[in-house]
Simulated assay, not measured.
Amino acid sequence: MTDWDIKKLRILRTLADRGTVTATAEALHMTPSAVSQQLTNLARLLGVTLLEAQGRGVRLTDAAHLVLRHTEAVFAQLERADAELAGYLAGDVGEVRVGAFSTAVPSLVVPAVAALKRDHPGIEVHIRETEAAESYDLLSTGAVDLALSLAAHPPGTADARFTRITLLEDPLDVALPPDHPLADALLVRLADLAGERWIYGGSGPWSEITRSACEAAGFLPQQAHSASGWTAILAMVEAGMGVALVPRMVSARATGVCLRVLTHDRPTRYVVAALRRGAEAAPAVSRVLQALRSTAAARL
């Protein structure tokens, strides 16, 4: 394959535009002898004659015009590559894979992606619904670039592998069966529910969040049923099978149960954005993170 030299092709292209070696040298901030030398080397690389003497100047040969026809397509593609690369460096283009637990998808991720499509249409976000407990495994294996997880407490910096940022403090309400004795009480405290049968996940962040909130109220919750999906949890509460803590993200859409705000206890879960440490410097990832932060801030 012929060894094409972009720098030398650019000189030939400029000569075709400017007409003389002297004008070409001025345009490219070179000496006329350097221009002539580069074009001689290009002719040798391509194995064709590019210039012919014409009076006191030179003219391009048919072979040179053939080369330039193809060169224009090459330079056009390089211009597009430069523009796309500039957009990438500015965070205006790129692909970002986001893993998020089910309730975060409609309430945080979808609005953030919609805002990005409006302001930065070159950024393509691929959403993967995940369990909050698997977020860090997905980050570690490179399956996602950014993950939304849950925590019972504000995230620290103990794990050097990840950068973790609190997006939202999501209040927890309590879901009671419609005929529960406390359904019409003026005030419901978490401690009032110490003797209840509780419904929550068997493991992972949500189990820790429920246990942590109840322990802060002075009791260990008696787990009657284990479920990870809110449809199942709320159906069991509605059927009188137990009570459950429900995040505000979910309670706003819950039906069939009595939802009470725990104003005295004010239990909270933390929605956390996690990235591999250093990944936040990638422009497109930074754009997605900022969109998520803005969406979360709008919910406060």
Results as ranks from 00 to 15, higher is better:
P171R: 10
A112N: 08
T31M: 04
F101W: 04
R260F: 02
A73W: 05
T22A: 15
R164M: 14
G122W: 07
H126V: 14
R69H: 11
T268P: 01
P121D: 13
A296G: 14
R211T: 14
A25G: 07
L167S: 11
I233M: 06
A227E: 15
V125D: 00
D82Y: 07
D159V: 10
P106H: 12
I233K: 03
S226K: 12
P181E: 09
R10C: 03
T263N: 09
R197F: 00
G242P: 07
Q37T: 15
P111R: 05
R253F: 07
V250S: 06
A43M: 10
E131V: 02
R266Q: 14
G278P: 05
T163K: 11
T255R: 12
S36D: 06
E238G: 03
T31S: 15
A252D: 09
L167G: 13
D192W: 04
I233T: 10
M236P: 00
L193V: 01
L275Y: 00
L262K: 07
E124A: 13
A81E: 13
T163E: 14
P154C: 07
L60P: 01
A86Q: 15
L300E: 13
H120D: 07
V48N: 06
P32K: 01
A25W: 06
A104L: 10
A132W: 02
L78D: 03
L60R: 13
V21M: 11
A43F: 08
L139F: 05
M30Q: 12
L45C: 08
A183R: 02
A282Q: 09
G195K: 01
R128D: 09
E208K: 12
R248M: 05
L116F: 09
D159M: 11
Q37M: 14
L150T: 11
E124N: 13
R13F: 13
D173S: 14
V110F: 01
S33K: 01
A216G: 02
V109I: 10
P267H: 11
T40Y: 13
P177T: 07
V285F: 01
A227N: 04
G202D: 14
L146I: 12
P171N: 09
A160K: 10
S107C: 06
V243Y: 03
V67L: 08
L262A: 03
G218H: 02
A191E: 08
L68A: 10
G87A: 15
A160W: 05
E129V: 09
L186D: 15
S226V: 15
A104N: 04
L78Q: 10
L186G: 14
T268V: 15
D145F: 02
S36P: 01
A158M: 09
E129W: 00
V109P: 06
S294E: 15
P155H: 07
G19T: 11
P267G: 13
L46F: 08
M249G: 09
P247F: 04
L50T: 12
S286L: 11
A86W: 02
G256S: 04
L234Q: 02
P171H: 09
E84G: 08
A16W: 06
S135E: 04
V250T: 13
R248A: 15
L108W: 06
G122Y: 06
G204S: 05
